[in-house]
């Protein structure tokens, strides 16, 4: 399992094929599962989001391993990982970085903030005020950061994994819909079941396994996999199917899935196809990603049920060929 990074690098970088990309993804998933117990689906969704160039929002109660998941993924890819703890007094420059005066050269020089990394973990993102949250937004959407009128590109690949607590909602700033829309998927991990939890406890006795986690792929592998994902065939009937799903949510909720959401769903489906080793996406791929991609973008009136329920309804109602 602990394939040497150099060989993986060589194989993947040479040829951005679906086979290679799928191999990379599966290797990473297996690797992460050494640390994270009983959350296979969440791991798959997260990897899919990374292949589909998306960002991830993890919402759950504290202590279920949100941070651990983000860290293991980052470690498996052997990429730069940084973590920002969002607090009410956090300033935008604490994320992006600041220009400081260099007394030796007599010039201002940019000292980059934590956002300059391949994987950025924004912990408890809803604790910071919107101004600070929006500092992350530009990086997510534009893959660049602007400080004092100067733009600095973030490293590539660049993935934001943000978490927020679903408890203690006082003294928090809910993410606005516009910001939520920029997260490709929203996941929740949930408590592990009894057997998994016992297994988990057994593993953490002594050294935490994450300390021993070896990288199994390089950033080059990830870039190649992303390229291969983008090449996955999406035929017209599938595009129409995704469109119909999105339209269905718009017709049945206050706020439905935006075109950006539909694009995200197609990318997710492509990534799913890669996981399955296929070079074309099928409705099953769309259905697998539909809930995590669409549910958090839907706003329904009180008493109408959740976004996830509407997505399930759409999957039942919208005809697939």
């Amino acid at each position: 399992m602990s394939e040497s990074p150099s060989t993986a690098d060589a194989a993947a970088a040479a040829e951005p094929t679906v086979e290679a990309a799928g191999e990379t993804a599966r290797t990473v998933i297996d690797n992460v599962e050494q640390v994270i117990v009983g959350n296979h689906e969440a791991i798959e969704h997260l990897v899919c989001a990374m292949l589909g160039r998306g960002h991830v929002l993890l919402e759950d109660v504290p202590g279920v391993g949100k941070t651990m998941l983000a860290r293991s993924i980052a470690r498996s890819f052997e990429c730069e990982f940084k973590r920002v703890q969002f607090t009410p007094d956090l300033l935008p420059t604490d994320i992006t970085g600041v220009n400081v005066y260099n007394q030796q050269t007599g010039e201002f020089e940019f000292r980059s903030g934590p956002v300059f990394a391949n994987v950025v973990l924004g912990d408890e993102i809803n604790r910071a005020p919107p101004k600070t949250q929006s500092a992350l937004l530009e990086a997510m959407e534009e893959e660049q950061v602007t400080v004092d009128g100067e733009s600095y590109p973030v490293p590539s690949p660049f993935t934001v994994v943000a978490t927020q607590n679903s408890v203690e909602r006082d003294r928090t700033y809910d993410l606005p819909a516009a910001e939520l829309d920029r997260f490709m998927v929203q996941l929740s991990l949930g408590y592990p079941d009894e057997a998994d939890e016992a297994d988990l406890l057994g593993r953490v006795v002594g050294d935490h396994p994450i300390e021993e986690l070896d990288p199994v792929a390089t950033t080059a592998d990830l870039r190649a996999a992303r390229e291969a994902t983008g090449e996955v065939t999406v035929e017209a009937p599938l595009r129409e199917y995704v469109t119909r799903l999105a339209r269905y949510t718009r017709e049945h909720a206050q706020l439905g899935v935006s075109p950006r959401g539909a694009i995200a769903l197609l990318r997710g489906a492509q990534a799913r196809a890669v996981l399955d080793g296929r070079d074309y996406a099928i409705p099953d791929d769309v259905q697998a990603e539909a809930e995590v991609v669409m549910a958090h973008r839907i706003r329904r009136s009180a008493g109408e049920g959740t976004g996830a329920e509407l997505v399930a309804e759409a999957l039942d109602a919208v005809a697939v060929e």
């Binding site: 409705p283 039942d316 919208v318 005809a319 697939v320």
Partner: peptide
């Protein structure tokens, strides 16, 4: 076959 059922399912 139900409307939302994929060919695989």
């Amino acid at each position: 076959r139900r409307p939302g059922e994929t060919a695989r399912e």
